[in-house]
Design a protein around this nucleic acid. Structure first.
Lengths: 227, 227
DNA sequence: ACCATGATGACAAATCTTGTCACCGTCCGT
DNA sequence: ACGGACGGTGACAAGATTTGTCATCATGGT
């Protein structure tokens, strides 16, 4: 796979280049934000790996600039610390996933292929499936067991986030950042209410529960049998 | 479902045969491009699974040959790596979906049923096409040249009526009766305004005019070339 | 049983859709 | 080329939907 790596620290860059190279990926390296934006034009890439801290601007800023230039390749953001605020912050600037820096090789490779697979699916048939749910990305429509589920824009965004993090537990903070673009707690239960509305619609199509509540933590999308 | 599997690697073929068999599908296996083309005649199949790399020709070539023989079964292409160039190439060649090879069982099965469902829908009229316009009846969504056209409910009803009367001249009275359920003249230009809004959206997807005005009579939907 | 946490119904605010109208441009017969 | 009829379009207002808030109820875990 073709990877654009935007990372200023030479040591980190060296290690990444080595690890990714071994796994059979081709790396294009940019050492600054400006360089990264320029080299993005050299594409196509399958994925962009972006350091959160760069000498001439933050990764967040670069992500936003890339998106506004119409670049839709998936972005994996790296940060020195795995603070959950940062993770949450990264999700709205256009980053698709977030990895804390003392990362392990396996996890890095796994995340890369997960992201690449996800975006490949979307470009393709534009149909992403999870369990018995089928999401037509371009039309922004959803089917459960072949039954159409009419969703409002918010509900769609919400469900899409769950599908993109298929099977993972998702916190309210993550949802607020990714769907509502809020980095602070609005002190209301918007998320809960929206989850409720989404649940009702999904269960109107098929009564089996799909959105599990993880008590004290968040929610998780369950993969129901399509049969 | 009946599946034609065209795959030269015996190990991959064995695993697929096993997984698909468990899921209740009937497999016909071909180990080369030539064999695949021959066995396609043994059909009917619900879906064709095709490896991108074969000893006697690429999957791309096979897909093209199958299509030119008039075979319209959906094709799922498999490839070793999920590289973006290959993906694009594959879809051009007539494949309907594309799956990178370290795939998981659930995903494979989900894609197969999605593809099969889609082609079934096309046959039973759940997807209606006219010229370069594609109308997904159950989801009430519309595409022009593959680009999604977001329509409001009224606009959708309006367009649907034109598609159902494909190519015919349609009068304002017909539209008022069918879309607005009015059997008298409301003495306003609702129809004209709605046509205008529909036109703008359809032409945002592709600039070629599709809704022709028949002066003194009504309107007509034109069949534009899908290319 | 108690407290913290999540679910839900009802209302309000914001957004999007639809219909109306006034005005402008275009077509066609003369 | 002119005039009148017909169609197109922008702006506004009424109506419908979506979204957010809050109060209240239900449920899980200790």
């Amino acid at each position: 796979m073709d990877i654009l790596l935007i990372e200023d620290d030479p040591e980190t860059a060296r290690i990444l280049r080595e690890q990714l190279g071994e796994a059979g990926h081709a790396i294009v390296h940019a050492a600054s934000a400006a360089d990264g934006l320029a080299r993005a034009g050299e594409g196509p890439f399958d994925i962009i790996i972006l350091d959160r801290m760069l000498p001439d601007g933050t990764g967040l800023e670069v992500a936003r600039r890339l998106r506004s230039k119409g670049c839709s390749w998936p972005i994996l953001m790296l940060s020195a610390l795995g603070r959950s605020e940062e993770r949450v912050e990264g999700l709205d600037g256009g980053a698709d996933d977030y990895l804390a820096k003392p990362y392990d090789r396996q996890e890095l490779l796994a995340r890369i292929s997960a992201l690449a697979r996800r975006s490949a699916q979307q470009e393709n048939g534009a149909i992403v499936t999870f369990g018995d749910i089928e999401c037509h990305v371009r039309a922004r429509t959803v089917f459960r067991r072949g039954v159409h589920v009419p969703l409002s824009p918010r509900e769609y965004e919400l469900l899409k986030f769950f599908i993109d993090h298929g099977g993972d537990v998702v916190t309210r903070e993550m949802l607020l950042a990714a769907v509502w673009k809020l980095h602070f707690d609005p002190q209301t239960n918007v998320v809960d209410v929206s989850i409720g509305r989404l649940r009702r619609k999904l269960e109107a199509a098929h009564p089996e529960p799909v959105l599990e509540t993880i008590w004290g933590t968040g929610y998780r999308l369950l993969a129901c049998q399509p049969g």
